[in-house]
Design a protein around this nucleic acid. Structure first.
Lengths: 191, 191
DNA sequence: GTCTATAAACGGATAGAC
DNA sequence: GTCTATCCGTTTATAGAC
């Protein structure tokens, strides 16, 4: 995988995106600067501008990368047998995203920072929410048919409410230093 | 809550707190400055420092005022007959808090900005969440007994999940320019 | 109480050398 | 690609006159 002498060879660009992702998930759009990234990665801020001319360029690519990574992990869940099992794996996936308990979903954070975002980023955040809600609606409908999940009303309505509950629980998990609140949300749709 | 129709003069201090509240609900802790307030209220930034020496002082008082106002409105709901009616009025109350659709709950916003807050403010935000969850647990238990609400598991668990769902729905209401998503959450616990 | 003036650091961003 | 140097507006905050 790595033919170079150096054992770890992530490009500067990748490091910048990685750290930007974490900073977005912990402090939000207005909570970090190129200077923070400069310190973390070990390059000058002007070098960051070489890769990402404006902050919005950096954030747009960070959210797109995040979204692609998360959604591909989610679609991999579809191999699970029952809808209940899929939901469990889905929740566990987001539990990992929370890290040591100091992070929330990147797109949930950006939804809070909505006023500071460019149109491009807003669209990307909306797409992430839509994709998750759509996937959840499918799983909920399946679980309803299999009698393993309990939902009030139509699957798409229940899915939007459930995803909102998950996003809200990310905030409270961090606020109260516990991951239990994430599972409690999943519990509300189980039989 | 400053919904009085009296065009009576409000003190500079009150105006500052009012505008700070709105700015927090739209842009978050790192999304507004003393300069913004200066423009809105019509006093110099140095005058703001006279009332609130540091930004954290301003935010602490803003969140305390917000919390006291909201909670007193909530406790006034207890006069309602059925638990379902209480929940309806509760959701309607938060619907008003969202304003023209560009605001979210102040404490939900600060929960996202957690890393930027002082201990005092964090405690105030936690207290707001606890108070709402506790009130909701009582209503859910009542609704369960009255057979008008449907909840999985214990009332306090369901209450935490419901409040998380409401907080999440505030974000998505703004993200998708609709208030329907708020009602959809309430729908999930109704029979 | 409110102002002017100012400090000192931070913010995003650019030009140009190497 | 990465650096130094720099620009210029912003942000929080203080000192002191009125």
């Amino acid at each position: 995988m790595n033919s170079d002498k150096t054992p770890e060879k992530t490009t500067v660009r990748e490091q910048l995106l990685d750290h930007a992702q974490v900073l977005l998930m912990t402090r939000g759009y207005n909570g970090f600067s190129y200077r923070d990234l400069s310190t973390l990665v070990g390059v000058k801020t002007s070098s960051i501008h070489y890769y990402f001319p404006a902050k919005e360029d950096l954030v747009l690519e960070a959210v797109n990368t995040y979204s692609a990574d998360v959604m591909s992990s989610i679609y991999a869940i579809d191999s699970s047998a029952t809808a209940e099992k899929k939901l469990d794996r889905y929740v566990k996936l987001f539990g990992k995203l929370l890290g040591e308990g100091n992070q929330v979903c990147l797109c949930g954070m950006l939804a809070a920072d909505l006023d500071s975002l460019t149109e491009d980023v807003v669209h990307a955040v909306q797409a992430f929410f839509k994709a998750n809600e759509s996937w959840l609606a499918k799983v909920l409908a399946e679980g309803d048919k299999q009698q393993t999940l309990r939902l009030n009303g139509k699957p798409d309505v229940a899915a939007r409410a459930l995803f909102a509950a998950l996003q809200g629980s990310f905030l409270t998990c961090r606020l109260f230093h516990t991951k239990l609140r994430l599972d409690e949300v999943a519990q509300t749709v189980k039989r």
